[in-house]
Design a protein around this nucleic acid. Structure first.
Length: 271
DNA sequence: CGGGACACCTGCCTGC
DNA sequence: TGCAGGCAGGTGTCCC
């Protein structure tokens, strides 16, 4: 479910229901997420939601008190807005109930996701305090990649998936961006030229922006019971296509493991 | 310190 | 049909 584009699509989907709404209740059915859900989360009850923002793959629900509810979807998390009276299904761990009678419902089978509480006047949780720049802003530049990669022995694929370098580049889009830029994912980060970092930076921005746009289709029926995505599948050039012909040169796409993650590339186009 | 392995957890798909 | 095994879109932690 959650690469950055899907988190952003979720944000766009839930924001209209949440912004300006009053929270009348919070139901926690299972506290055992990535980190235990704090009891103090209930302090959000009675608060008005001022905005729903995103930082990296975290969704941040800003409250009038200055407090924040911070959600992360992990590997399998999903958010839906539905009538609060709808009976919960398996893995519906948290409801944020609104005065409108609707609720934001967090479902996460694997429980790698998180729901953090930042009390008013408190520091942002440490998970969010060491994050690199957002990929779709001007803070993310080729110069930054070139600078940070100096002398680095890690594979360039791992490098761009490092949240301290740039946030929001998950496994799928790391593969796709490296294909677009014609860079072998195994290449050491320190051995990628400035010119090619220029191309890679553009590729990351392009692939993420495009995926968010395509997510807009999913957005349309976001509140329906199960609008299941899969929207980006047709657009993928290499991810999940081992053995299939490269869209550019027809050489079979190869797969291997880098940093315990499945990696796909065209041995002809990517050097 | 950089780099890499591992951990967390459930569902689903494959192959015997 | 059943079951074991492997794999999955993330990321903090631990160990060398």
């Amino acid at each position: 479910m959650p690469e950055l584009p899907e988190v952003e699509v979720s944000r766009l989907g839930i924001a209209p229901y949440l912004e300006g709404a009053q929270i009348t209740g919070i139901i926690v059915r299972d506290r055992r997420l990535r980190w235990p859900v704090e009891e103090a989360l209930s302090d959000a009850v009675g608060q008005t939601v001022m905005a729903v923002n995103r930082r990296a793959k975290y969704l941040i629900i800003e409250l009038q008190s200055g407090g924040r509810i911070i959600l992360h979807l992990g590997m399998s998390g999903k958010l839906r807005v539905l009538d609060a009276a709808v009976p919960p299904i398996k893995h519906d761990h948290i409801d944020i109930v609104l005065a409108s009678g609707k609720c934001l419902r967090f479902n996460d089978p694997r429980r790698f996701g998180a729901c953090l509480w930042q009390a008013p006047g408190h520091e942002i949780p440490t998970q969010l305090s060491h994050l690199g720049p957002e990929p779709l802003t001007d803070d993310f530049t080729a110069d930054r990649l070139a600078l940070l990669s100096r002398g680095k022995q890690v594979a360039v694929k791992n490098f761009i998936m490092d949240n301290a370098v740039v946030v929001g580049v998950g496994n799928i889009y790391a593969n796709e961006a490296l294909f677009m830029a014609g860079i072998d994912p195994r290449r050491k980060a320190g051995k990628v030229s400035a010119t090619r970092y220029q191309q890679l930076t553009g590729a990351i921005k392009e692939v993420l922006a495009k995926a968010i746009q395509q997510g807009g289709t999913t957005l349309k029926d976001f509140t329906q019971t199960d609008g299941n995505p899969g929207y980006f599948k047709q657009s993928l050039s290499v991810y999940g296509r081992a053995g299939e012909p490269c869209i550019a040169c027809e050489t079979p796409i190869e797969s291997l493991t880098i940093g315990q993650r499945n990696t796909f590339y065209c041995p002809q186009c990517q050097r």
